[in-house]
Design a binder for these strands. Structure first.
Length: 425
RNA sequence: GGAGAGGUGGCAGAGCGGACGAAUGCGCCGGUCUCGAAAACCGGUAUACGGUCAAACGUAUCGAGGGUUCGAAUCCCUCCCUCUCCGCCA
């Protein structure tokens, strides 16, 4: 959520920022509603001040035996009605203003790449060299079926299209990767969390997923509970309505959760394999930091995500996301894409974002810059570390051998308990 | 799911229609005393909005929302949450 104060103070700047994110401009409407709201609030406050005073006098008079005149009581009744009317007006205006504010994306960082859409994103650097194959590498959907480690049909049988089942070595490999990632980030200073993955409506609002992106979410109508599309959602709200101690920042968290996405908008895209599915596992890193640290913390977060790719020996490139392609809550983002030899594609395995104070405002997460000072909103950052299906794809496709077997990356072996997934069943 | 109890400031805990943003204690901050510390004593110690150069000041907030009343932390209704007991169940 954007600060109303900022919109009042510098509407031109906010308008330009919204435009760079491809957003329609409703700033003038907000300002208009806001000034009406403030008028009503002021009038209400004045009437209440009057009522408080008169009531005080009535109380004092009563205690010395006098009884108040019916005229005054009648007048105060009217004042009370007027106050109620004004309160209702303020409530309505609040709801309207809030509706607009909740629909506005975050303002990009000054250092963010300018651009209109995906085509303007920039590859900033890359690491590793895609392996040279002496045979034609298979895509993971073929590997998965050949080795009986990914079962597409039975996933569909259970839950419909875009669901799959891992079995045997496949399930064990994924579990091993998750454990290893959590340990890796744990050693880097991230505190591990195990979280609820169905959450209340306002939790989704706090992270920025609602009200705008309801289409992408699974929803339990009976209790108005929502399945999380990423651990970012519950972690953001972990410190909701809190004032964090001035010396407690930065706070680093890491969590593994299943993620649920309806992918309505992507109907028909990437229907093969496990690249784009409705339910997947992800390890997510998250930071709560002081505002002046968030730029450098983003670089560190990115480097923590990169370290996962490096350890797994997966060739990757870093994409700087331009303003027009940036996600709703983000002020600056990098994606990490790993190379998958079989489907011959760069796969997005991580997105690292600085959300500045956008989620902190929505979730009311503050800190004290110093002892005895006024609280201010924290900055939040999130980054996948990493998304499991695509890491699985890259490992299977890049590490496949001529005989059909898969070599397990060195670092995972203590976690898998096996070095190779055999090529023949 | 049933029955009962309860939700008040950083914490504990009083207040149950007017003088209550809220006693008291603890904690925390500042001071006096001390070579220093402890103890003791004195003072301060919420958040949001409006206001202002800054203040003063005004308004709101005692789980949330509604109601009664000139006036609600206090009375009434609805909802949420916590605890205890019973039932059911990984």
């Amino acid at each position: 959520m954007l600060s109303l104060e900022l919109i009042r103070k510098d509407p031109g700047f906010v308008k330009a920022a919204m435009l760079s994110k491809g957003e329609d401009d409703c700033i003038d409407t907000i300002l208009e509603l806001d000034s009406r709201r403030r008028e009503a609030v002021t009038e209400g406050d004045e009437l209440r001040a009057k009522r408080n005073e008169v009531s005080r006098h009535i109380g004092q008079a009563r205690s010395s035996g006098e009884s108040p005149s019916e005229e005054i009581l009648e007048e105060m009744r009217k004042v009370g009605d007027k106050i109620n009317d004004l309160e209702e007006t303020v409530r309505q205006l609040d709801a309207e203003i809030n509706g607009f504010l909740m629909g506005l994306p975050n303002i990009p960082r000054g250092s963010a790449l300018q651009g209109n859409g995906e085509e303007d994103n920039r590859v900033t650097r890359s690491w590793g060299i895609p392996r040279d194959f002496e045979f034609t590498p298979l895509a993971h959907w073929d590997i998965g079926e050949n080795l009986r480690i990914i079962d597409f049909q039975r996933g569909v049988k259970l839950s419909g299209s875009r669901f799959y089942t891992l079995s045997g070595y496949g399930a064990r490999l994924e579990r091993a990767i998750i454990s290893w990632m959590l340990e890796l980030h744990g050693r880097a200073g991230y505190t591990e969390l195990a979280l609820p993955i169905i959450v209340r409506r306002e939790i989704m609002e706090g992270s920025g997923n609602l009200p705008k992106f309801a289409d992408n979410l699974y929803h339990d109508e009976e209790d108005d509970l929502w399945l999380v599309p990423t651990a970012e959602v519950p972690i953001t709200n972990l410190h909701r309505d809190e004032i964090l101690d001035y010396n407690s920042l930065p706070i680093y968290y890491v969590a593994h959760t299943p993620c649920f996405r309806r992918e309505q908008a992507a109907a028909g895209r990437d229907t093969r394999g496990i690249k784009r599915v409705h339910q997947f596992n992800k390890v997510e890193m998250y930071k709560f930091v002081a505002p002046e640290e968030s730029d450098s913390e983003l670089e560190m977060l990115l480097s923590d995500a990169e370290s996962v790719c490096k350890s797994l020996d997966l060739p990757y490139r870093i994409i700087e996301i331009c303003t027009g392609d940036m996600s709703f809550p983000s002020a600056k983002s990098y994606d990490i894409e790993v190379w998958a030899s079989g489907c011959a594609e760069w796969l997005e395995v991580s997105s690292c974002s600085n959300c500045t104070d956008f989620q902190a405002r929505r979730s009311n997460i503050r800190y004290r810059p110093e002892e005895q000072t006024r609280p201010d909103f924290v900055h939040t950052l999130n980054g996948s570390g990493l998304a499991l299906p695509r890491v699985m794809i890259a490992i299977l496709e890049n590490n496949q051998q001529q005989d059909g077997s898969i070599t397990v990356p060195e670092v995972l072996r203590p976690y898998t308990g096996f070095d190779t997934i055999p090529g023949h069943i």
